[in-house]
Amino acid sequence: MERATDLAECRNCLCLAARSAARRITAVYDRELRPHGLRATQFTILTMLMMRGQTTVGALAKSLGMDRTTLTRNAALIAAKGWIAVTADGGDARLHVLSITPAGEALAREAFPAWRRAQERVSTAFGPVGVAALHRLSDARMT
C-alpha cells in the first residue's frame, strides 16, 4: 500500500535545514571578517594556502569540497587584490598553481582573531555534540 502524499513533511526537509544553517553560519564568519575586507571563503582559501603551500586549483578545490570553476572565480578575485598569485604550471598551461603572497599571509594573520570569534560563536550555538555531528556529516559519504 502506497503511503499517502503529505507535503507537510517537507517542512522538516533536512536539505533545506542544512542549506539555511550553512547560510547563517557563513553570515557569522562574513560579519566578523568584513572589517578586514574578507569573506569567509576568501579567508579559507588564504589559510589553506598558508598551511599547504602552493597548490593546484584542482587539488585545493578537492580539499575544500568546492567546484573547480567556483574556486577559479574566487581565486581571480583574491589575486586581483594581490593576496594570492596564480601561475601556470610549466608543463601544462591549463594547470594553474595558487600561492599566497606576503600581503595575503599578513591579512590572514591579522584576520585570524576575527575568524576565531566567529568559530567560537558558531561552536557555542551548536554545542559539542552538534559540532561533532557537523564534522561527521562533512566527512560522510551518503551516495
Rank of each mutant, 00 (worst) to 15 (best):
A140K: 06
T44W: 02
L16R: 14
A103G: 06
R24N: 12
R23Y: 08
A85M: 10
M1K: 13
S20L: 14
G37I: 06
D6T: 12
F112L: 11
H36D: 12
F112K: 05
G91S: 12
C10A: 15
G91Q: 10
V57K: 03
R34S: 14
N12V: 13
S138R: 10
A125Y: 04
H135Q: 14
I84S: 00
I84K: 00
H36W: 13
T101Y: 01
R121L: 14
C13F: 12
T5W: 11
T69N: 12
A17C: 09
L77Q: 07
F126Y: 08
T56I: 02
W115R: 08
A79I: 04
S20R: 15
T55N: 02
R109Y: 09
R141T: 14
F126I: 11
M51L: 13
D6H: 09
R19H: 14
R11H: 15
T47L: 08
T101I: 05
A118V: 03
H96L: 07
G127A: 04
L95K: 11
I100M: 03
R116I: 14
R109V: 09
R68H: 11
A59V: 05
R116G: 10
T72Y: 05
A27D: 08
L71I: 07
L71P: 02
T26A: 12
P102L: 02
T87R: 05
S138N: 11
L71G: 03
C13V: 11
L16K: 11
Q54S: 10
T70E: 14
A61I: 00
L49F: 04
A118R: 01
K62V: 10
G53D: 01
M50C: 07
C15L: 14
L49I: 07
I84F: 00
T87Q: 08
T143E: 11
A40K: 09
L49W: 01
E32S: 06
R31P: 05
G65R: 06
L134H: 03
A22Y: 07
A61H: 03
A93Y: 06
T72P: 03
P128I: 06
C13M: 07
A108R: 00
V28P: 01
A76I: 07
R94I: 04
V131D: 01
R39M: 10
L49Y: 01
L98M: 05
V122L: 09
F43S: 01
R116A: 15
G104F: 00
A59K: 02
A17W: 08
G53A: 04
C15Y: 12
T44R: 04
R141Q: 13
D92M: 01
T70L: 11
L98P: 00
L107K: 03
I25M: 06
H135C: 04
P102G: 02
R116V: 15
L98D: 00
L64F: 05
R34K: 15
T101E: 00
W115E: 05
A114R: 06
A75T: 02
L134F: 06
S138D: 14
